[in-house]
Structure formats: C-alpha cells, structure tokens
Design a protein around this nucleic acid. Structure first.
Lengths: 202, 202
DNA sequence: CCTGTTCCTGACCGATTGGTCAAATTCTTA
DNA sequence: TAAGAATTTGACCAATCGGTCAGGAACAGG
C-alpha cells in the first residue's frame, strides 16, 4: 500500500532522480558519489538518504523507470503496417531518443558495459520476450517477401547499436565530425533512412 | 633514452597491464581499484606502484597502446581495392576484434562514455585525420558510382557501432539470443555481410 | 664470496567513501 | 496556537581509496 506523495516529497524525489541521472550517466555507478548527487539536487547528503535508503536504491529506481520508456518505441512496431516504413519509423524514434535523452542512454550503456549486475534478470525476461515477439513479426514479413531476408534479432541489434551510438559515443562523433550543436542528428537521420531503405527493400 | 627491460620487468609490466585491462574494462577507471589490479596481477599494491607511478599512469599506458591497434583495420582500407569488398572486409576485421578482444573494446567504450577525459585530444587529432582521409576515399568511390551514395562519416560510424556492439553490449546480446558461447558471432558476420552488401551496392 | 643494484613488502597516511544519528527545524492539523 | 509529524542538518563513523616510505630480500657482476 503506497502512500500518496506530498508536494515536498514529490519535488525532492524528482530532484534527486534528475540529479542522479546526470551524475550516474556521466560517471557510472561506482564513479558517482552521493555528495555529487546531493549537491546537484540542492540537498544535503543525509537528506538524500531520508528519501532513498541507499545509493543503490537511487540507481535501481532510475533503471526501473527507464526500462519501459526505453522499449516503448519497439513496442509500437505495428505488425499490420508497411514493413519497411515500420522498421524505419522505429529507427527514427530510437534516434530521436538518443538526441533528446542521451543521459538515459548512457546510464543504460554504463550498466550493460559493467555486465548489467543490477538488471541482469530484466534482460533475459521482459526484454527477451519483447524482442522475440517482434523478431517473429519481422520473420513473418521476410517469409511474405515484404522485406529482404536478414536475421531479425541481429537487425534489431543493428538498430540499437547505430542509434544509441549517437548518444553513448557522442564525444567521439562530435570530435570526428568537428561539430558542436545538434545538426549532425539530421545527417544521421538521413543516413539511417537511406541505409535501411536500401538494406530492407527486397 | 629508454633502457631495455630486464626479463623480470618485462614479465611484471605485462602482468600488470593484462590485469589492469581486465579490471578497468569491467569496472571503468573510477570503479577499478589498485588492490583489484594488484591481486589480479599477483603482485602487492606497492609493487604495482614500483612499476607504474600511479593508477592513471597504468590507464594511460593501456589506452595509448590500444589506439593504434584499434585503428589498424581502418588504416588497411585500400583505395585501390574493390570498394564493396574493401568496406565489407573492414567490417569483418572489426567484428573479429570485438570477438577476440572484447576487453579492449569495453575499455575504450568506458572512456568515451565518460566523455573521454583522458584521450579527448587523440580523438580530434589522429583519429579525425584518419577518418577524414578514409571518408574522402569512400566519397571518391561514391562519385565514381562504385557504391551507393551514403554519407561516408556516418557509414564509418555505423561500422563502429554495429561491430563494437557485440563486444560492449555482450551481456545484452547473449541474454536476448539466449546463447553462451561464441556461435552468435558467425551469425553476426553473416548478417553484416548481407546487410552491407545490400546497402552499399549502387 | 662481497657489494651495489634491483625488486619487493608491511606498516602506515590523509582523503574520500557510503551511511548513521541525535537534535534542530519546518510543516500540518486539530 | 499548540502538539505531533515530517523534514533537514551538522557531526560523526568505519571502511576503503590512492599513494608513501623505510627497510628487507633477491639478484647481478666482479
């Protein structure tokens, strides 16, 4: 039985999670400190621990809230739609997430990189289930001759890899391109559209 | 004037770097501890610091030695070769590196994820130079009608993203596919070959 | 064998870490 | 407005961090 949150609880909880997202995504779990998070949230360290029982509790809350949002674009892949457009739409939505929520992407990347010690189960369970389901849909499209024959699982991996690359390896992308703003995301969108059009069309 | 290393120096230095690669790639720079590295190397902590002046010195040595090896596959991209085969060859070599040297890939990924604080300059300098050079080659192929018109820089990013994904997100890939060995790398090789064949052929 | 150099270690240090706690402050509500 | 609950804080703690240092052990060449 969860109690409704007071305004002050609401405000501080979100401030903590926002600050923690900033710090965790930048330094990883072990690299982040409670002092950093407290300072970024404008609270004292003991006050952090009044709202969350431990550093790990903050991190866990963040990851749990993330999983669903992160998989939503895949969930909306429509079996009844036009196959090529559906997949390209998924690519674009995923790329937009890299542009608009890079911290979430990096938080996730950090966790996976370290071997996913805190969400290992979530990967084999809900994630695998969803991917398998959508892979079946894609395989159906292949069997019907609607798209080119490509291993559906690895096709999904390719989408994750290419879109998240622009968030996770942002520094590298910027250095190599020599840009500072957001303009290269439009280039990326164009590239990915052309790329997947060519590879998916039967 | 660097002195030649004695056998014992040789042995311990490589043992330290091997252990540090293991630990750094798994926990990131801040997450790794000298005690962990010392234990993994079979040495005492003060003995580590007899060979390397600091934790950062170990990390730096590791990254410096990595950069060249990591870019070699791109360097061997031959302007005179068959365009599609050259690029697909690069993809395969990069994928093999993900399979055979996943720790190096994760070490690099960790560094970039945290904003590349220790190799920031190397990205804008040598890396950018090499990429720009190869991008020009690819653009030449496009202008000659040898491959499909795709932004060369983003094409290179796509190769990095997709191949390194199999090393950096290894846990996720394994969980989703439900595999434990190395077999899925053969699938990945096949997928990438088909994928790039379709998208590069004019 | 002796001697100087290289290699190695236990004990230790100050700084930082995640976390605790009693007391003070602020808010709510009767 | 008074009492009780919720919120906030400074002071503090044990553990761990990267790193130091004096001295001992092993090794080399003569």
């Amino acid at each position: 039985m969860t109690q409704p949150l007071t305004r002050i609880q609401q405000k501080n909880t979100t401030a903590i999670l926002e600050a923690a997202l900033e710090v965790f995504s930048q330094h990883g779990f072990r690299g982040a400190t409670l002092d950093q998070i407290a300072k970024a949230a404008g609270l004292s360290k003991p006050n952090l621990l009044y709202y969350f029982s431990s550093k790990e509790a903050i991190h866990e809350t963040l990851l749990n809230g993330l999983m669903d949002t992160w998989l939503d674009p895949l969930r909306t892949l429509n079996p009844q739609g036009n196959p090529v457009d559906e997949i390209k739409g998924y690519v674009q939505r995923k790329l937009e997430m890299s542009r608009d929520y890079p911290r979430q992407s990096r938080l996730f990347a950090n966790e996976i990189l370290q071997g996913a010690p805190r969400i290992h189960d979530g990967l084999g369970g809900p994630l695998k289930t969803l991917v398998d389901e959508k892979a079946t849909v894609i395989q159906g499209w292949i069997d019907a001759g609607k798209i080119a024959p490509l291993d559906p699982h690895h096709l999904i991996f390719s989408i994750w890899a290419m879109t998240q690359h622009y968030a996770d390896f942002d520094v590298q992308v910027r250095q190599v391109l020599g840009v500072s703003g957001d303009a290269h995301f439009a280039q990326a969108a164009e590239f990915l559209d052309a790329f997947y059009t060519k590879s998916l069309t039967p």
